[in-house]
Design a protein around this nucleic acid. Sequence first.
DNA 1: AGTAGTATTCTAGAACAATCGAACTGCCTG
DNA 2: CAGGCAGTTCGATTGTTCTAGAATACTACT
Lengths: 114, 114
Amino acid sequence: MFMKLSNYTKIFKALSNEQRLKIFMMIYKNCCSPEGSKIGAEFRIKGESCCPVGGSLEKAFTKICDCMSLSRSTVSHHFKELQNAGLITCEREGQVYRCKVNTEVLDSIKDLMK
Amino acid sequence: MFMKLSNYTKIFKALSNEQRLKIFMMIYKNCCSPEGSKIGAEFRIKGESCCPVGGSLEKAFTKICDCMSLSRSTVSHHFKELQNAGLITCEREGQVYRCKVNTEVLDSIKDLMK
DNA sequence: AGTAGTATTCTAGAACAATCGAACTGCCTG
DNA sequence: CAGGCAGTTCGATTGTTCTAGAATACTACT
């Protein structure tokens, strides 16, 4: 159940940036809502609404960039860091960009602090 | 119960360095053992044993430095970062350097990930 | 195939973090 | 009160991270 220490630091590092933590929380609050948890947060490329909690995120990067005043490359970079730490998994299906939080990773953090 | 996002990032940043996480875990495993939790981990300046889990840490800095191949100034810096994030509190009484983990902070992390 | 929209990669600069050694302060203890 | 540990602060060096912009690649639609 326990990971190597360096895995933990990777995770903490990923969450140590405020922008990235925001993005993570957006995904987390989505995909861990009753329905969200089944499907993962959906980041649709076409659409209008922006960064809601409890629905799906539309027009992922562009909208997140607007919300957070970050460039696309930066947001892309943050997504990759989160994936790299194992905190989220993302996959693309046509125009839908689907992200899920890896709850096992969260569990092992809670374990570490038990 | 929830803190500002920037408080969380401070905490995660403090734990995002492997050396610092090691130091933190040493303190944590000490002061959260049955007896340890009452008194806090003790870092005695005189003594012999090194970096045990479940006792008190003797000759804190010197020994930790030996264990971890870090200079005193670096270790001192890491202690300060941990304190700064609110993860631990330290106080000195003569030759005894006493450290405690702030479990409320750990609780709010667990809350964030609930 | 061509175009538009969207994400990724690369690069580079600015800001920040980790680390050390040296100089310093404080507290015993002889 | 002098000497010696224990820890802190400072300055320098080296390495890492954040970020934007430009160039590139992927996807859908016409």
